[in-house]
């Protein structure tokens, strides 16, 4: 049986990525407050919604990254098998 070694996540990279998502969500909140002319207090009061939004974006990104990684892995395997047959 082949042993598969999964690399540990790079926590620093993930934290930066989540912080970027958070900044994006806060930016959307600022845009929404300005557009819909609601109270600026919502910068604080709507923080749970902003956090949830940031988490959602981060999760979507993570899903995309995992899918990308899996696709890359499959292509590499496919190419390796094809190269083996030719030689």
């Amino acid at each position: 049986m082949k042993t598969i070694t999964l690399p540990l996540p790079d926590w620093r990279k993930e934290a930066i990525l989540f912080a970027a998502c958070l900044v994006l969500a806060i930016g959307l909140n600022v845009y929404a407050i300005a557009t819909f002319q609601t109270p600026w207090a919502e910068l604080v009061t709507e923080m749970p919604v902003v956090l949830a939004l940031a988490l959602l974006v981060y999760t979507l990104l993570a899903a995309g990254r995992i899918a990308g990684y899996a696709l890359k892995h499959l292509i590499a395997n496919f190419e390796r098998k094809n190269t083996g047959r030719k030689s």
Binding site: L28, N29, Y31, A32, I33, A34, T35, F36, Q37, T38, E42, T45, E46, V49, V50, L53
Partner: peptide
């Protein structure tokens, strides 16, 4: 009263 801006945007 209207919903918070972020909810309206969503």
């Amino acid at each position: 009263p209207p919903a918070p801006g972020i909810i309206q945007l969503i």
